[in-house]
Amino acid sequence: MDLSRAKTVLICTFLILNVFLYYQILQDEGRGNTGLFGRKEEMSRLESALQEAGLFLETPLPRGGIRLAYLVVEPWRFQPEEIIFTLWGALQNGEKAFPAGHGELNIFHSNNEDNLAEYHFGEYKLLVSKEGLVTLKRTRDAKLQQVYSLEESEQIAQEFNGKVSFLSNFIYDYSQKKEKGIVLNYRQEYEGFPLYAGYLQLFMKGETPTEFYLYRLEPVGFAEQKREIIPPSTALLRFIEAYTGNKEKTGIVEFSLGFYSHEYDAERWEIPPVWRIRLDDGEVYYINAFTGILEQ
C-alpha cells in the first residue's frame, strides 16, 4: 500500500470517528449527562438513591440541557354567573334549554366559612376562592347511573369540555380511579410546554361530572432572562432527598418538564419551569427546574 492511499484511508477513518464522537457529545448534552465518569457516577448514585427511597423508574428520563425563562401569567378573570350559565347547558346535556328569565336556574349567592363565594343552581353548587379556584359540586346524589369504563368516561368528559367554551382548550393529562369515581386530569399548555399550574380535575360518575376543580390562567409570555435548567438526573436526586414516601415500592410513572406554581391571589406572576414527577400511587411532585427545590 502506498503512503498516499494510507493517508486517504486514515483521513476517512478519523473523519467518521470525529463525527461519531461529536454526535455522542451532542447526545449526552441533550440528556444532561456530563461526561462518562460523571454519568456513570451519577447513574450509580441515582440507582442507589432510588433503591433507598423505595422508588423505581417506570419511564425513561427525558432530555434536559435546555434554557428556559419564567412564564408570566395573569389570573383568569370571570364572572361566576357566566360560568354557571355556560355550565348549565352542558350539565343538562342539552335536555333542558337555558330558560328565559332564568326559570329554574335560581342562583343563590353567599360567602361560606372558608371565605369562598358560594353559588347554588339546580343540583349543583359552585365555590369560588379569592385566588380564582372554581369548584363545582353536585349537591344531591344522582339517580342510579350507568357505569362507564375509563375510556368511555374520557370520551364523555371530552364531549363535556367541548361544550364549555372555557374548558375546550384544556389538554388531557392523566386519569385515576378513586372511590368517588373516575378522576380525569386536564392541564393547560403554552407554546408546546405543559402549564401544570392551570388545571381541570373532573370527577366522573355516569354521564355528567359530579365534581370539578378548575384553575385557569392567562399566559402573558415568557420573561426575558433565560437560564439553563437542571438536568433530569439532578432533579430526580433532589426529589429523592425531599421524598418521605411510603414503605411500599413505588414506581415513577411520569417524569416531564412543564411550568407550575400554586395558586396566587395576585395580578400577575412568574411561573418557574419544573420537572414533574408522578408516582403510581397518584402522588405528584414538582421540582423547580432552576433551583432544584421541591415546589409546595
Partner: peptide, 23 residues
C-alpha cells in the same frame, strides 16, 4: 490528517471528562 487526529483527541477528552456536573 494531523488536524483530524488532534480533533479526535479533543473530542475524546470532552466526551470522557465532559463538563462538571450541573448540580
Amino acid at each position: 490528517l494531523i488536524c483530524l487526529i488532534l480533533l479526535s483527541m479533543v473530542l475524546t477528552y470532552q466526551l470522557w471528562f465532559g463538563r462538571p456536573p450541573l448540580e
